[in-house]
Design a protein around this nucleic acid. Structure first.
Lengths: 335, 335
DNA sequence: GAAATTCATGAAATGGTTTTCAGGCTTTTA
DNA sequence: TAAAAGCCTGAAAACCATTTCATGAATTTC
């Protein structure tokens, strides 16, 4: 049915081996022969059978991506970056969403292994420890994107969540805020949310503010959860002067609740987010946040994964992408 | 290196054929034999070599997805729906972003063909005509998601853009708005934006409002473009009473510009969007919009593609998912 | 001008599965 | 009890590319 190398060989009047050599531009073939072959390829519109190639070579030029909650703007941009850089480097992407469930993660891992992926990007955060042991066992090159893994063997690229969260709290404290509340991520999220928590604690200590776990309301990174977290915060701590949400969507959700209650942001309460998604520039009030680039993170992840795959020298296992505190309208200095 | 069917066969003391039959649960194998084989499979942790299977069977359980601008919330949810339903039905996804460039689309089409995908979902809108002829030529089952294709052979699933845009304009007119301006999508986007434009024209005619092309400013579905489109609109048509942006992000961008100019929404100008992304509920003012579910659209697309792949009877080539006008705070009745 | 290299090519083995075909064994039927 | 039918299994071909090894031709070297 399909045209195969055999057909090309016949038309060009050469052997299979020669066609293969031309297609993989081996240097060992006379220019004239190569031209002849190329002509046949063009004429027949020959397309390689990838499965046959993979079967023989055991390399697929395929990168697996397993993520969760990828519809979130930050992660959607991360995926975009991954795709762009992967394509640039000649990889195709096979993409699976785990919904944050270990079983699905495992499942995709198996499927991807069966497809002989060259490497894998993990953007899933809940069960990374279990995943890790599987991946190590499979011996597949792996990069964790957007999460810090405390394992010297594992590469990861992420914003420095500790430092960034620290910066934000420091900024709030310097602006005179002492009565803070937080909307953290899911407790299951051991990579991003826990790290940000660490940064917060650090900054609190240096600002001599007591760390009160009660003041950390759990959200799940959605608008909705920010909204209801703000509600809880206001009922428990009506005197709060600043709310730090661990991502921008939750901050927007919180602001929305406060507006509903006729509480002015930032006059009555300052609200800040994390990620720096585009949306934050367009809402009212524009959101003060920590800006990081998901797209850049994606590019970098593939770059590193590619290095691992090609067994190139790697300078550093843990890569931090830049972050920046951007102060907009949702924060106020206290008198 | 890897464990193959041969190893399983040897351990189980049967032939390759039998192992294969067990794995594909052919009925022609004695239960006892099957158990023996299964035990060997488990013991060796055998994983099939997918490339070999694809090579032999010419079917991959792989679905290709080519999209553009997938970081937009609506499309990110569409992708999520596609992934969920594909997984449910035993497909894996190979995903490529075309950036709206024909060359990249072509390129991915080739790659995917080489990988023997079982079917393809196209979410790319600019060059669908050229794509179409390629896809037809390749004889790959295809579904266009989020765009209406006027070709009886081609399946597509989308919101009824004409009707929805019509509804929105009708709503505005009935609220007393006559002085309208529009932020449309890229002129290259022949699927969504042009269809919405048709709906608008239809409604204008019925409301006896003159269709003035000047009043349609081109955007590209980003916040930013909505912002600058609003700027253009206000300078050209300062008396406008309502702005209809062809997606929510542009509406939010427009609102942001108006706020900057101290123009009150909805008191001075009503602004409406399209898509009904979650964000619209949380901004100030909450956005009046046409709500459709990207996620549902994704599910449905895979469902239909699956039918085509399995050559099942298809009731209808063109499927419309529901839409709903949701009126929130960004619109006003004129006196 | 003969021997030694280098160069260009082809034949054949290989990768791991599915599937057809044939054959042996057991069970049913007359 | 012999013939027919049905069931289960194995051998081998097929899918399509890559790669090793061998070979013949062309070039270099002494």
């Amino acid at each position: 049915m399909d045209v195969t190398m055999k057909d090309v060989a016949k038309l060009a009047g050469v052997s299979l081996s020669t066609v293969s050599r031309v297609l993989n531009d081996s240097s060992l073939v006379r220019e004239e022969t190569a031209r002849k072959v190329q002509k046949a390829v063009d004429k027949l519109d020959y397309q390689i059978n990838d499965s046959a190639r993979i079967l023989r070579t055991n390399t697929s030029n395929l990168i697996g991506v397993i993520g969760a909650g990828m519809e979130r703007p930050f992660l959607a941009n991360l995926l975009k970056g991954i795709e762009a850089e992967a394509r640039e480097r000649g990889y195709a992407l096979i993409y699976g969403d785990s919904d944050g469930e270990f079983e699905k993660e495992q499942n995709y891992l198996n499927i991807m292994k069966q497809k002989k992926i060259d490497g894998i990007i993990l953007i899933t955060t809940n069960y990374y420890n279990d995943l890790l042991s599987i991946v190590k066992n499979y011996q597949i090159p792996v990069v964790f994107a957007s999460g810090y893994i405390n394992d010297p063997q594992i590469s990861c690229v992420t914003v420095d969540n500790v430092a960034a969260a620290y910066d934000m709290v420091e900024f709030l404290c310097k602006a005179g805020h002492k009565d803070l509340a937080f909307i953290k991520g899911p407790d299951l999220d051991l990579l991003a949310s826990q790290e940000r928590l660490r940064g917060v604690k650090l900054a609190l200590r240096l600002s001599e503010i007591r760390y009160e776990p009660r003041r950390f309301i759990e959200g799940d990174f959605t608008f909705e959860s920010g909204y209801s977290a703000a509600k809880k915060i206001m009922s428990k701590f009506p005197d709060v002067t600043a709310i730090f949400a661990f991502n921008d969507e939750m901050a927007v959700g919180a602001i929305s609740y406060l507006r509903e209650q006729n509480i002015k942001v930032p006059e009555d309460i300052s609200v800040v987010g994390f990620d720096g998604i585009e949306l934050g520039e367009y809402i009212d009030p524009a959101l003060t946040t920590i800006k990081q680039s998901g797209y850049q993170l994606g590019l970098k992840s593939i770059e590193i994964l590619n290095n691992i795959i090609n067994q190139e020298k790697i300078e550093d296992n843990k890569v931090f992408i830049p972050h920046e505190l951007v102060v907009r309208e949702s924060t106020n200095r206290l008198a």
